[in-house]
Write a protein that binds this DNA or RNA. Sequence first.
DNA 1: TACCGGTACCTAGTGTTACTGTCTACCGGT
DNA 2: ACCGGTAGACAGTAACACTAGGTACCGGTA
Lengths: 115, 115
Amino acid sequence: MGNQMTEMLKGTLEGIVLAILARRSAYGYEITASLRDRGFSDIVEGTIYAVLVRVEQRGFVDVEKVPSEKGPPRKVFTLNAKGRDQLAEFWRTWSVLAERIEELRNTDNQHGEGA
Amino acid sequence: MGNQMTEMLKGTLEGIVLAILARRSAYGYEITASLRDRGFSDIVEGTIYAVLVRVEQRGFVDVEKVPSEKGPPRKVFTLNAKGRDQLAEFWRTWSVLAERIEELRNTDNQHGEGA
DNA sequence: TACCGGTACCTAGTGTTACTGTCTACCGGT
DNA sequence: ACCGGTAGACAGTAACACTAGGTACCGGTA
């Protein structure tokens, strides 16, 4: 797992988690699974919990404890209004960056246009 | 200047600089100007020098001191083979990440499709 | 009963990164 | 003698994802 991906995830991982919560409420373990399904297979569980603590402290999500049949109670996160604002801001920032980088790639004709 | 962009630049800025050097050799001040031209107007000069120190230490660039008529001698950076490899790796990682995030955006139908 | 594995959550410590603020140094123009 | 533009450099800071563990609950198996 290249650490390059690790560095690139900085600043985007939080948005990714918010985007997943925008679809439906979920708890940590579930979000981790969801990420794996979506190809983010290199993201470790502990990292997700750290992100969730952060978004909770910043007030982007509402939290509800739900008992589960197995293991400790689930901590279900629901995106709230502030979180939706943050998510919108994330998409704006991402769009700007992605656009500029794609322009850069188009003018960069050296990188073995193989694939 | 949202700090969101700041965080997102982590992990991409180095690749951006390498991509600029892939087009032609340049010195720090020039690279900063080039970035401004390309819309990365929020990146500060000092940051670029830090990136250049890093890529030099990692051996991605060759360095040549060229006297200038004004100010101290220019430190001209040229992308070498190792640097081109690193750039290729950057584009690969970026493609993977960008693709996954775009998929996530497509399945996220909540974020006011304003623009 | 005793143990293991899966579910679910949490935390301290580490390394990397970009920014802020400031500094040195050279030069031409006023 | 001073200022602004060119060119480079650096210490300190904040934010971030990862490593590497740990706690707790439960069902199944030996």
